[in-house]
């Protein structure tokens, strides 16, 4: 059984449909990536999965449960955690406090939370250096690291990472991707939304979206070799 199964999902804003019958499956332990041009519905998909947009129709099954239309609170407790596009760290709180907010659903279990903090700092040593600095004063790359670390605090079974490479230098992007790979190999399933073709190197599975539906599905490496798709959806050659 797949960890996450999306069937015929449709959603939109006001009267404007964005997702029109989207279906895909993600197996436990893999890194999946959602590709597509601006407006294809990638962000809408992850917002739906995280419960921030209520789907119009279709079904989302997670870990054997039908979680369609659930509240974000319940979904986070269930283990679906989103690292939103644009980082959205709390600017007037320190790194330490940001991480503490991330552990909100498990605020009574301090001991385990401390262990996760240690792990997160191991992934991103930079955070340790700026431990008591306000998040608003961090660089874009550091904020992205903090956002991912904060997501980890909620003990995800699946981590949804939206456009983590946006606005980062190629070098920083590489670092972030490497850490995501490490997080994945430590046992967390990952779904990334990306426009950066570099992500395919760490992806087990790739989905390509266009106009709210799936147009291609394959292994990460396959797409890299697939010249047509690469040019149409990833812009630059990899």
């Amino acid at each position: 059984m797949s960890l996450l199964e999306v069937q015929e999902l449709s959603a939109g804003y006001g009267s404007l449909p964005v997702l029109q019958g989207l279906s895909f499956k993600i197996e436990e332990g893999e890194t999946a990536v959602l590709l597509g041009l601006n407006g294809a519905g990638k962000t809408t998909t992850v917002l739906c999965l995280a419960g921030l947009i209520k789907p119009w129709g279709g079904k989302i099954t997670f870990d054997g449960k039908n979680v369609t239309g659930w509240d974000p609170r319940k979904l986070v407790a269930e283990g679906i955690v989103l690292v939103p596009e644009g980082r959205h760290v709390f600017p007037e709180l320190t790194i330490a406090q940001n991480l503490r907010i991330g552990a909100w659903p498990y605020r009574r279990d301090r001991k385990h939370t401390r262990a996760i903090v240690e792990q997160a700092v191991e992934y991103f040593p930079r955070l340790q250096e700026r431990w008591t600095q306000l998040a608003g004063t961090l660089s874009g790359g550091e904020q992205q690291m903090l956002a991912i670390a904060r997501g980890l605090m909620a003990r995800p079974k699946i981590l949804l990472i939206d456009e983590s490479s946006l606005g980062l230098s190629p070098k920083l992007t590489k670092t972030v991707f490497e850490v995501v790979q490490k997080i994945n190999s430590d046992g967390t399933t990952v779904l990334m939304v990306e426009q950066n073709a570099g992500v395919l190197k760490i992806a087990d599975r790739a989905f390509v979206m266009e106009k709210g539906t799936l147009v291609y599905e394959g292994q990460g490496g396959e797409i890299l070799d697939h010249a047509e798709i690469r040019e149409a959806y990833l812009g630059a050659p990899a």
Binding site: G12, Y13, G14, V18, L37, N38, G39, L47, I53
Partner: peptide, 25 residues
């Protein structure tokens, strides 16, 4: 809108994005 909440503004944005997408493809 930047926060990803659906409202009239994002509807407009989406419409605009759709049209710009057509231009690109």
């Amino acid at each position: 809108d930047a926060a990803g909440e659906p409202d009239a503004a994002s509807t407009q944005t989406m419409a605009a994005v759709d049209s710009s997408e057509e231009v690109k493809s």
